[in-house]
């Protein structure tokens, strides 16, 4: 069995709420190499033959099982690219926890590009949690570029929770989904950028079948001199419903662009959007300070509440 260092353990706890090696199926990748893997009777994990990455097969009808596939980068100057494919069988119901933690100790850029492809067969259900996190004493950039592709067959349902709160210098996030009839997709994205970080997120959902529906809920906070661009496009090609809501808080000298886009190719598509950028409510800050919190603690409390994440995650995220 592999040895996990203290840094590995900390990254795993943060990105996957894992303490040690997980139960169920898993695949842990560190610095471009596989360090631990387990399949179960219902969930097969195997390496791809033609490129780096894994194939994961969840047997039809599997219920209440989980797969953890964290990626760790703990060296400077490495560019790691992986392609992971999930095939989730009919009527299965699984939890997938992914995420990437970068600890960059040096001066060179560390980068992870993860391409995740999901096929949810008829009636399958999945909750997907992806947390991105960077740390480390080095000056080297920490870059994460996740790409997520989802294909939802008839009646499939997916819920995505995409969180990037701390320590990632540059990110280009792409999420693309296609929904067949009665399929349902919820995407919740929380992003926080500080300092000179930048985040660019593009979410595109195409509603192809009658009765398909989606909700894209993005929350973001930009502090310091950071930059964010958020684009979300809903395409309706059938009697389907979609809603996108982007809500951002802006602080310091940060800049945010929020661009929801609706594209209807059927008179029966019902598409709506709302976008708001505002600043932190002064009265909330003041009230928390009257309860004994310092200004910094009060700011982090409000931001954590807004982003729907644990306040501890924000502890190091000054402007």
């Amino acid at each position: 069995m592999v040895q996990l260092s203290a840094i590995d353990e900390e990254l795993l706890a943060t990105i996957a709420e894992l303490h040690g090696v997980p139960g169920g199926a898993y695949n842990i990748r560190r610095n471009g190499e596989l360090i631990a893997r387990a399949s179960t009777p219902e969930i097969q994990v195997e390496s791809k033959k033609d490129k780096p990455g894994i194939n994961i097969f969840v047997a039809p009808g599997t219920k209440g099982k989980s797969v953890h596939i964290p990626v760790l980068l703990t060296v400077s100057g490495l560019k790691d690219v992986v392609y992971n494919t999930f095939d989730i069988g009919e009527d299965a119901d699984v939890l997938v926890v992914a995420g990437c933690g970068i600890h960059n100790p040096g001066e060179e850029k560390s980068q992870h590009d993860g391409i995740h492809e999901f096929i949810l067969r008829r009636g399958a259900r999945m909750r997907y949690v992806e947390r991105h996190y960077g740390q480390g004493p080095g000056t080297g950039e920490r870059v994460l570029n996740p790409k997520t592709i989802l294909i939802l067959e008839d009646g499939a349902q997916a819920e995505l929770e995409l969180v990037q709160i701390s320590g990632v210098d540059g990110t280009v996030r792409e999420t693309e989904a296609t929904l067949a009839g009665r399929a349902h997709l919820v995407i919740r994205e929380s992003v926080l950028t500080t300092g000179k970080q930048s985040a660019d997120s593009f979410i595109s959902v195409e509603l192809r079948g009658n009765g398909a529906s989606t909700e894209v809920l993005a929350r973001s906070v930009a502090r310091g001199q950071s930059r964010q661009i958020f684009r979300a496009r809903l395409t309706g090609r059938a009697r389907a419903k979609g809603h996108v809501a982007c809500d951002s808080l802006i602080m310091d000298q940060a800049e945010i662009s929020s661009l929801p886009e609706l594209h209807a190719a059927s008179p029966e598509a019902e598409l709506t959007h709302e976008a708001a950028i505002g600043r932190i409510a002064g009265e909330q800050l003041l009230k928390l300070m009257t309860l004994g919190l310092s200004e910094e603690e009060a700011v982090n409390t409000i931001l954590a509440g807004f982003l729907g994440v644990n306040r501890a995650l924000l502890a190091g995220s000054r402007s």
């Binding site: 909330q284 928390l288 300070m289 309860l291 954590a304």
Partner: peptide
């Protein structure tokens, strides 16, 4: 903050509303 820590407390005329914070969180804070 310093005054609060010195034992002064003030219940606002217009209570402040917090999005995303539960009542139990406020007591903890």
């Amino acid at each position: 903050t310093a005054r609060a820590r010195e034992g002064i407390a003030y219940a606002f005329q217009q209570p402040v509303r917090f999005k995303g914070l539960k009542i139990k969180d406020l007591f903890a804070l």
